[in-house]
Design a protein around this nucleic acid. Structure first.
Lengths: 238, 238
DNA sequence: CAATGAATACTTGTATGCAATCATGCAAGT
DNA sequence: ACTTGCATGATTGCATACAAGTATTCATTG
């Protein structure tokens, strides 16, 4: 038991087929191209993806642990998907715990982290001025993910990562022409400052408000959708 | 070669070898019999458990999704385990979201559920009078699990189930001779009443307090442990 | 004796084969 | 027409086979 120097896990997930299949299926489920109720048939998938059943099986097992499919005895893995109720639940849950992540991030702030976080918000502002919607959304995700990577709680980070995965479809589709972008960036900046100052109370308070605002936005969007409007209008920046 | 058993698909998850291996490994990791840093070698495990590599692999993939092991390219799956920092984090996180589960449970209360919940607390009290420690703990788990099965949020339930899994070792070992049992049952009863009355605010408030108390208890226990005392004394009932 | 390089063993990743189980459809009988 | 029983096919669960990469060991050489 000597030899340490393992592969840096940061970012680089395993490059195995199992993982690629998993990510592909997850993506499909979360962005809606694989519909809830659908059955994932190992043989069919392995044919379509050009791999054998083994990686497909493993991917399906992983999806099951994530709660994205349910294994039904002789029917295959039936897709559960994420409906609008789930979406709202996720936002509510985030209201409850993402503030905690900000609090902990504030408690664990370092100079390098201050710099990194600030850069993200600056970039987001820059992209906003340029109206680069795609990048705005990208920075939005980065901001939140960076914060909870600073919280130094494996458990909380894991939970938040899963939650963010679940809502990525909504986030991506709601990027364009957000009336809230400007406000959201301002909120990000406030949170940023609180975290940089190591003010956990304030960071938490502001984050809760921020996510509540995002949730209100989602509610409006869902109401519009119910009235028949399309999906991709109104605000992102949650 | 090995006994084929009539295994079959029956039950989908519970009966499959993969599932059993998964549960066995999970149990081992969470109760500390498989130590953090240890490598799970597929061939070794498949030999020890008398199954082939396939179910072992699948179990390991599941553990990875749960964050209990980390797959290292050519070293196998290295166990991450749950240290006391994780334990505390879990309690803190529960403080933030388990109240939400109680709130939602209160909002979705029905007559049948009132009855079921009440029975659990009654039983716990009964076992307390009889000093059946094992059953007290069992009812403790049942109480909380039942509540978040009523919250009707797949996501929240999933998250809480995982959290409870993570701390099951502590809960089990801290059953005996809890000075807090009586107090905890009283708190359960208060929460029960709030939920039964559909009073979400109160249910949430009481639950937060309850879990905070349990957390304080854990802190005391960990402090004692640091001073060299054994693990299994003092309070359960979280 | 130390260094180096080749052989070996270990470990995972992927594919395939086989058995068990369940769903489905069809035919026969009442 | 409705039910029952059987044959067939679909699908999973598990085991094994094979390939590839890596760590380790050991022998050879300077």
């Amino acid at each position: 038991m000597k030899k340490q120097e393992n592969v840096g896990v940061g970012g680089g997930e395993a490059n195995s087929l199992s993982w690629r299949v998993f990510e592909q299926l997850e993506e499909g489920i979360l962005n809606g191209s694989i519909l809830p109720g659908e059955s994932l048939i190992e043989l069919k998938l392995s044919g379509e993806l050009g791999v054998s059943r083994t990686p497909v099986r493993e991917a399906i097992r992983m999806l099951e642990q994530k709660g994205l499919v349910r294994l039904v005895p002789n029917k295959g893995a039936v897709v559960l998907g994420v409906d609008s109720k789930d979406l709202l639940d996720v936002y509510t849950i985030r209201t409850y715990i993402e503030g905690l992540a900000s609090r902990w991030a504030a408690e664990n702030i370092t100079e390098a982290r201050r710099k990194e976080l600030r850069e993200i918000v600056d970039l987001q502002e820059f992209y906003h001025l340029k109206s680069y919607q795609e990048q705005i959304s990208e920075m939005d995700s980065r901001f939140h993910e960076t914060i909870f990577s600073y919280c130094e709680s494996r458990t909380l980070q894991h939970m938040l990562r899963d939650l963010h995965h679940m809502i990525q479809r909504y986030r991506r589709q709601s990027i364009a022409a957000s009336g809230r972008t400007e406000k959201a960036i301002a909120e990000h900046r406030l949170i940023l400052e609180a975290i940089c100052q190591g003010n956990g109370d304030e960071a938490e308070r502001l984050t809760v408000i921020h996510i509540n605002n995002a949730k209100e936005n989602l509610l409006k969007l869902l109401a519009k959708e119910d009235k028949g409007a399309a999906y991709g209008e109104s605000g992102a920046s949650n």
